[in-house]
């Protein structure tokens, strides 16, 4: 799987609509209302936040390469996919690329991977009687989670090793063999220190970013399986560090006022912000919060009409939808309706 092709696909999705940098923000998982909404609007939410450490300079190198290979043309800061570019994309679906689910897992995948790596290292060391070693993961909250897990098992290392082996064997059997190998090569244990993504990339003659995609895919596949049957993967499930709040700080504040009984207009005046900004917040809230009642902003009938219009135009671009609707239904309503379609709320 190639990063380059993924970028090409994403540029195609945002063609004529958004700037080149929108793709960068998407991959980085920028916590802005715009980026989040675009992800759903253009149905590329699977790739939201899948490369949170992406550097702008790296991204720019890829864009330059795509341009030099004449797969993409940059005009007015927008990327247009050329004929050759379209040929590469033809007949291939990237929508569910290796079942990566950025929107769902971007806040927990890195921590899960690190927790897994540290647990494997610790258990591997302990079953070999090595109790003094330098943890390969630095973050103290991950270290304390692993410590908790060990304590839950009353430090019976052999038992943990057996169960960890069992659960990993079962879950890795369900995913692509190559992805499983890539992930395990990054793990450290008694016999050896794991490899970095960069080192595996050299071995396989690929780009470092390609390897990152493979790792993310492996982790997301594992998370999919274990969250379907958590009772079967009790040890691995313990490594999921729940982060519940997906709202930006400012949207959270708006939500707090809303829950305290204030109207949209009141919140705007209290917070000294523009109405449109507060509307952005509500779209974000509607995207992520199950408890949010959309009907306080839109009638059931209007919502149905908008949903119909979306079906009819088979697009998520706002303008063609708006053109089909009554004058009274404004862009805010349409955006709320689209946000409401997200089925992954908390």
């Amino acid at each position: 799987m190639h990063y380059r092709e993924l970028l090409l696909f994403l540029f195609k999705k945002l063609e004529h609509e958004r700037s080149v940098n929108a793709v960068f923000h998407l991959l980085k998982g920028k916590k802005s209302a715009q980026t989040l909404q675009d992800a759903y609007l253009f149905q590329i939410e699977n790739f939201y936040g899948i490369d949170r450490k992406l550097k702008k300079s790296t991204f720019d190198v890829y864009v330059r390469e795509l341009t030099e290979k004449r797969l993409v043309r940059v005009e007015n800061d927008q990327a247009i996919v050329t004929k050759q570019g379209n040929q590469i994309l033809r007949g291939r679906s990237f929508q569910s690329y290796y079942q990566i689910k950025g929107h769902k897992y971007h806040q927990i995948d890195r921590e899960f991977k690190q927790g897994l790596i540290l647990l494997i290292q610790t258990v591997s060391m302990l079953i070999h009687g090595e109790n003094k070693f330098i943890p390969i993961v630095d973050q103290s909250y991950i270290q304390s989670r692993v410590r908790e897990v060990l304590r839950d098992y009353s430090m019976q290392f052999d038992k943990i090793a057996e169960q960890l082996y069992g659960e990993l064997h079962t879950v890795l059997s369900t995913i692509d063999e190559h992805l499983a190998t890539v992930l395990l090569k990054q793990c450290s244990g008694y016999a050896r220190v794991g490899m970095s993504e960069q080192q595996i990339a050299v071995e396989e003659n690929r780009n470092k970013e390609d390897l990152h995609l493979q790792t993310v895919a492996a982790i997301h596949n594992i998370l999919d399986t274990i969250s379907e049957q958590p009772e079967k993967y009790t040890l691995l499930t313990r490594l999921i560090l729940k982060k519940t709040n997906r709202l930006t700080v400012s949207a959270q504040e708006t939500f707090n006022f809303y829950q305290a009984g204030h109207t949209l207009e009141e919140i705007a005046s209290i917070r000294q912000l523009k109405i449109s900004t507060i509307q952005d917040h509500f779209v974000e809230i509607a995207t992520h919060k199950k408890v949010f009642n959309i009907y306080s902003f839109i009638s059931e009938q209007d919502l149905n009409e908008i949903q119909e219009a979306i079906q009819n135009t088979s697009t998520r671009k706002l303008k063609p939808i708006k053109e089909q609707l009554r004058e009274e239904i404004d862009y805010f309503h349409i955006r709320l309706a689209i946000a409401n379609m997200n089925d992954d709320k908390e």
Binding site: I120, V123, S124, I127, H128, A161, L164, Y165, L168, H169, L172, E177, A180, T181, L183, L184, K185, C187, G189, Y190, A191, R192, M195
Partner: peptide, 18 residues
Amino acid sequence: NKPLRDNWEALLGELLMK
């Protein structure tokens, strides 16, 4: 250096079995 295996099951065994 021991050579690194290129198969996930062997890797998993090396990590977690005595």
